[in-house]
């Protein structure tokens, strides 16, 4: 009788331990595995920043390039007409070199537009133009792009601005923001 009672007590003890372990497991699942519910809000605001950056940037007049808009500079760069001549000590004189500069060098878009805003707000970015031949991106080690989502960055927003050139040709300027 007393042996039975003792084993019953031990089983009870084991049951309590199992219940406690299950509770702990529930907590672990609750706080680690369930994804962040607020992520869409952040992504929403980031998508808006990307769209608004492109919109505002393309409208801006550039003092050093006879007050041509940045959109007009993109067109001039894509067409290679070199109609617009820019006068700035640091950046190049034609539209392409003025906007993007030589590879790995500071450029107008990087220094004057993207870094004082997205760079200061610590939002990794990549601005791509002309099928990727012209790129301006933040100074971080890993470029904001689709291949780094899931490893370096958790999310990425891509916005495009389409500039019509006539004759069915469309220029696409892409801005990617990562977080």
């Amino acid at each position: 009788m007393s042996i039975n009672r003792k084993s019953q007590m031990e089983i009870m003890g084991l049951a309590i331990i199992i219940i406690l372990l299950m509770l702990a497991l529930v907590f672990v699942v609750r706080f680690t595995l369930i994804p962040n519910q607020n992520a869409p809000k952040k992504e929403f605001s980031q998508a808006q920043i990307a769209a608004n950056t492109l919109n505002a940037m393309l409208q801006t007049n550039v003092e050093e390039c006879n007050e041509a808009t940045i959109e007009r500079l993109f067109v001039d760069c894509a067409q290679g007409t070199r109609i617009i001549q820019c006068t700035h000590i640091t950046y190049g004189s034609d539209a392409c070199s003025f906007l993007f500069g030589p590879p790995n060098a500071n450029s107008f878009l990087f220094n004057e537009i993207l870094e004082p805003t997205l760079g200061v707000w610590k939002i990794p970015y990549t601005l791509t133009f002309n099928d990727g031949s012209q790129v301006a991106s933040d100074a971080g080690d890993e470029k904001c792009s689709a291949e780094h989502v899931g490893t370096v960055y958790s999310s990425r927003d891509l916005k495009e601005a389409k500039i019509g050139l006539g004759g069915g040709t469309v220029l696409i300027v892409q801005l990617e923001l990562c977080s």
């Binding site: 808006q48 920043i49 608004n52 950056t53 919109n55 505002a56 940037m57 409208q59 801006t60 007049n61 007050e67 808009t69 805003t117």
Partner: peptide
């Protein structure tokens, strides 16, 4: 939020 500022007199952004 980035924005363009437009001067309607000088017609500049």
């Amino acid at each position: 939020m980035p924005v363009a500022l437009y001067d309607p007199i000088q017609k500049k952004y």
